[in-house]
Design a protein around this nucleic acid. Sequence first.
DNA 1: AGCGCTACTGCCAGAATCTGACAGTATCCT
DNA 2: AGGATACTGTCAGATTCTGGCAGTAGCGCT
Lengths: 229, 229
Amino acid sequence: MSRSERLLDLIQCLRRHRRPVSGRMLADELGISIRTLYRDIATLQGQGAPIEGEAGLGYVLKPGFMLPPLMFSDEEIEAIVLGSRWVAKQPDRRLSAAAGNALAKIAAVLPQDLREDLDASTLLVGPAMTAIEGIDLGVVRQAIRNERKLGFLYRDAGGAASQRVVWPFALGFFDKVRVVVAWCETRQDFRHFRADRIAELKTLDARYPRRRLALLKEWRATLDKPRGS
Amino acid sequence: MSRSERLLDLIQCLRRHRRPVSGRMLADELGISIRTLYRDIATLQGQGAPIEGEAGLGYVLKPGFMLPPLMFSDEEIEAIVLGSRWVAKQPDRRLSAAAGNALAKIAAVLPQDLREDLDASTLLVGPAMTAIEGIDLGVVRQAIRNERKLGFLYRDAGGAASQRVVWPFALGFFDKVRVVVAWCETRQDFRHFRADRIAELKTLDARYPRRRLALLKEWRATLDKPRGS
DNA sequence: AGCGCTACTGCCAGAATCTGACAGTATCCT
DNA sequence: AGGATACTGTCAGATTCTGGCAGTAGCGCT
């Protein structure tokens, strides 16, 4: 196996074990000596991979992912850039910042002529959306990723407020509002919650008892148009 | 210089010369022997780079770019995926297809757990937009890239139709409509054209006499809010 | 403090790979 | 036909990679 392939394998290995792994184990898994492993890790770190090694513990890969070299057509690049720009304009601050960072990383490695196009932004995106919800949607995204329950106060269309505990499994980006899709414990049904009507949001420690994918599938089945992706 | 760096340099070299380049010249430029060059080209092709060699001519890199290995945080990946999904829903067929392809390429290299999230689409995008313009926006994008004049029939808000020749330099994606931003020869001024009111679109052979970036800069200066990217 | 575990570095000889040169074939264009 | 060029096989020398060894340093535990 060539060295460059092995470096990618090493990242996959690190991703598999979430907890710190000793260099010895990684070396065995890859079939190389520990000395070479140290060299490989140094190379990856040199390329920007966020691998952390601590004496007495082992290595951890901070969450994130290294895309291997990938070939895109110019239209594909334009599509990615346009989309990221749209996301960067969304009021969700965390996601918006992430989109900006991703754009910067991509721009940094593009050849000169394309970078110009990108800076000059041949593709424009409409003005930012106005709705600014008081809650941090990053919290919602994280709860979805970890399958954690959420508690909050919800003010429905009529203005009546109610306390809810829900199992969130998707986040929608529609015209002007962002919508949390979840199973509502309080109502024992699937519900959509407009983000701008949510208050006092709080992640609960409890993990909800069903798999996110199963919930999503079931929810889709209840819709008229199953193609909701 | 390490081999992997050199491979990227080789791609850059190929991008610089748009017309076919002989292997001899590339080898000289990189300071390697022609034999090694052939090996490098073979390696790149093996990795998916669309390099074409023809006997008697030389090498050409089909338009497109290879992104080197790049590290993204999970939020950055989510931002890219969400954005690409939004683009994929746009009525612009070419760009939409490109977004779909880009998503497929990214999905193909994501580790299993992340791919699940992606398939399950934790992040939803609103319904596709309704407006369907009769023209092919791919033609417009290409004219913008190549700084070519466009001719078409435009039906303005009042319903009056007029023949136009314009220098297009940007494409806007707003709420429901796509807008071509251009210098209008007919009116001698900057104008916005809603894509759904354009008919009989045709790329003219003539290149327009000014640089796209200069036009864009000038146009921005005429706006209230200069931050239009 | 002392011990075990681990990350990390420098060094060196052998293994693996890469490189350049040469020879030869195939294909395209004029 | 002739010239230019892409491509392949082979092989010795250059370069890089690799594994083992020795040693330093940081962390957690007893």
